[in-house]
Design a binder for these strands. Structure first.
Length: 272
DNA sequence: AGTGCGACCCGAACGC
DNA sequence: TGCGTTCGGGTCGCAC
C-alpha cells in the first residue's frame, strides 16, 4: 500500500518518464475515479502536458499549464507506462495516451484511488491538500506542535499518527514502525504523550521516512510501485507484519492487535 | 468539537 | 472441489 515513501518513488519515477509529453487523449474506464467533471477532465487534458509532478503527503500533484491533476493512490493505485498496443488490463481505469504512442495507465485493483482536476488558483483552497499537516522531516514538525495537537486527545497515539491533519504521510506501516522506534506503546493516549516522546516521534518518523524513500518504499502484498520499481524497505521492518515473530531487539513475540479497526503490530516489551 | 463507524471496492483467505 | 463469507485498508461523511 502506497504511503508517503511509495508516493515519492512514484513521483520521481514518473517525472523522468512523462514530463512534457503531449497528451493525445484520455480514456476513463471507471468514471467514479474522477471527482471532477469527467467530460471536462478529458477535454482539458487533451493536447495538454504535465510540466511538473509535485507531492503533498500521499497526494500526487501533476502540474499542467493552468491546472493541477490531484491523484491519490489509496491502497493499490499504480501508474504504468506502456506502449499503446499492449492490451488493456482488467484493472486499468484511466489511460492517458501520448502522441509518441505510449500510455500512462492508472491501475487500481480496489478502485479506491481518486483523481481530481482543479484550476491552479484552487489548490490552496482544496480541502484535501490544505488540511495536510507537516510531513516527517519538515521544520514545522516540532515537539510543541505535536503536544498542541495531542492535548486533550483521548485517542490512542497510533490513531493520531494516522491523522493526516497532524502528520501528513504516515500510513499503517510507518505508524507501527515509528512507535516501535520511539519505544511508545501504541495504545497510549494522545494526552499523556510527553515532550520527550513527541521529540522521539519527530526524529523516528524523519529517519524512517528518509530511509524508506532511499529504498524506494516498502513492498507489501500486492503493491509494487510504478514501472517495475520495487520497494526494499520491507527488509528493514521491525514490527509491521511480523506477528508472532521475535522482536529483533529483545526477542519477545510481536503482537498484532486492532486499534480503531487497524492492525497494530508492536513489541510489548520494548513498547511498555 | 471530539469520536466512532459505515461506505467505498474486490481479491485473498478462510470455513464448511 | 466449490461455494459462500469475512477481512483489510485510507479517507470521507454522517451520527452521536
Amino acid at each position: 500500500m502506497p504511503e508517503i515513501a511509495e508516493v515519492e518513488t512514484v513521483r520521481k519515477t514518473l517525472k523522468k518518464q512523462i514530463l512534457n509529453k503531449k497528451i493525445k487523449c484520455v480514456k476513463i474506464l471507471y468514471e467514479k475515479m474522477i471527482e471532477s467533471d469527467v467530460e471536462e477532465f478529458k477535454a482539458l487534458l487533451k493536447d495538454n502536458q504535465f510540466i511538473d509532478i509535485k507531492r503533498r503527503g500521499k497526494w500526487l500533484i501533476f502540474e499542467l499549464e493552468n491546472h493541477y491533476l490531484l491523484s491519490h493512490l489509496r491502497m493499490e493505485g499504480k501508474f504504468f507506462l506502456k506502449n499503446i498496443n499492449e492490451p488493456i488490463e482488467k484493472h486499468e481505469h484511466v489511460i492517458f495516451t501520448f502522441h509518441d504512442d505510449t500510455d500512462l495507465r492508472y491501475h487500481d485493483t480496489r478502485k479506491f484511488g481518486r483523481m481530481n482536476l482543479i484550476k491552479k488558483a484552487e489548490l490552496s483552497m482544496n480541502k484535501a491538500i490544505q488540511k495536510q499537516g507537516y510531513e516527517p522531516g519538515e521544520e514545522g514538525l516540532t515537539a510543541d506542535y505535536l503536544l498542541g495537537k495531542f492535548k486533550n486527545k483521548n485517542l490512542a497515539i497510533k490513531t493520531l499518527l494516522l491523522d493526516q491533519t497532524i502528520i501528513s504521510g504516515l500510513g499503517n506501516i510507518y505508524a507501527n514502525e515509528v512507535l516501535f522506534s520511539s519505544k511508545i506503546n501504541p495504545f497510549k493516549k494522545g494526552s499523556s504523550i510527553t515532550k520527550q516522546e513527541a521529540q522521539s516521534i519527530i526524529e523516528s518518523s524523519a529517519k524512517i521516512i528518509k530511509r524508506a524513500m532511499e529504498l524506494g518504499g516498502t513492498t507489501i502484498k500486492s503493491y509494487t510501485s510504478s514501472l517495475g520499481v520495487t520497494g526494499r524497505f520491507q527488509q528493514e521492518l521491525m514490527v509491521h507484519k511480523r506477528e508472532k515473530e521475535e522482536c529483533k531487539i529483545c526477542h519477545t513475540k510481536i503482537l498484532n492487535e486492532k486499534i480503531n479497526g487497524r492492525s497494530t503490530y508492536y513489541c510489548p516489551s520494548c513498547q511498555k
